[in-house]
Design a protein around this nucleic acid. Sequence first.
DNA 1: TATTTAGGTAGACTGAGTGTATAATTAATT
DNA 2: AATTAATTATACACTCAGTCTACCTAAATA
Lengths: 226, 226
Amino acid sequence: MSPRPYKLGQRQAATEQTRTRIIAAARDLLIASDGFSGFSIDAVARLADVARMTVYHQFGSKIGLLEALCDSLASSGGMDQLASVFRRPEPLAALDELIKIFGHFWQSDRLVTRRLRGLALLDPDFEQVIRARDERRRHGLSAIIQRYVEKPGQTVPSTVDEAVNVLYTLTSFEFFDTLAGPARSLEDIVPMVQQLSRSALHLSNEHNQKTPQTEPNDPHERTSIG
Amino acid sequence: MSPRPYKLGQRQAATEQTRTRIIAAARDLLIASDGFSGFSIDAVARLADVARMTVYHQFGSKIGLLEALCDSLASSGGMDQLASVFRRPEPLAALDELIKIFGHFWQSDRLVTRRLRGLALLDPDFEQVIRARDERRRHGLSAIIQRYVEKPGQTVPSTVDEAVNVLYTLTSFEFFDTLAGPARSLEDIVPMVQQLSRSALHLSNEHNQKTPQTEPNDPHERTSIG
DNA sequence: TATTTAGGTAGACTGAGTGTATAATTAATT
DNA sequence: AATTAATTATACACTCAGTCTACCTAAATA
């Protein structure tokens, strides 16, 4: 009755290869197929040359497969380089590099990422998968900005949260993707995002007090740095 | 054989009411249901208290129904107020008001809009519906910025396109939605977007020449307005 | 009033897709 | 040689989109 101990040794390699082949097929299908139609477990299995049941056996469900695809994209998209960002002593240089790294990441599988994020807007389960990863970016930005405000010590914590939130938005995939549009390469817009982020930081420093909800009818308000 | 001429008079009112009821049901279902699952023609028909065939008869397909929902949202979301924007003589005031109007629009049916835009990322047919509307916003921004640069006459057209593109991104639903997050009301972030847009405009004016692709290792680069 | 038109309905049907269950196959492990 | 786990083949229940046909009904027309 008691199950005999069993370690898969050589078999694990074959299993990993099967999983990799299925994930690659899922990625290819998301790129090739028109949108999300045409992306089915059946089509993935056919493209990966495995039985449909194997996909379910390895990933449990469609969402499970796409979650594994997310992991795969993060590994191959240079997300591991993020560790070097937090070793930089200068916060603004770290911010610039973080923007650059994420620019490359968003670009590396832009179509696939777009589809995955579209699905996250429609499926609450999958939304949590994406949100968890986004929150890691927010946490990284928070660490950078914390060190940034520690030097002059001029900003209150609530304003720090606001600044982090703006940077979080400016470094989102959606911002990169919309800004790049159909023509601009994502590498071309990295400097734009970097400059916008600097501007946002300066704005956060200026407005330690809440701006009153005035009518925006006066275009002559001072916006330059005093 | 030749069909007798037929004008629907009283019947048109009843038909309009049916369409309105179906669209309202679709909107409610997108809000209530978990994501996009649970949104089916059958569910919409049941909630609107019509036969499933009636939905197909009126809207042709699921995409057709959602396209009609887009029209309905634009009507009820205050998009008609955009006409007053372009009558403003001062471009920057017009920009501020455009941002304000879109802020209210994005907020008015935020969940529904999010689902619709998520679907647009997955379905190429529906993507064109959304893209066409977004391009109208770009066109409006372009008109404003054209008048803005006519006064000092300092910026070259290619830079105008870049400035319009940045403003297009800053006024996108995705930017508002990400910036607002779960806690901030969209009305609270309208001033942020307005200030970021001003900053982006100033950056566009400063950088008529392309910035070289340097390593972002120097955090002491001048970023203030000289 | 009789006829025509068109919106709305009912029901059946195809086709595709997800997810589950069960048993059989195969190869590595014990 | 027995066991374990991956993979497979097959069948099943269920949902959904979209199409088709026939029908009912009320308004419009002659």
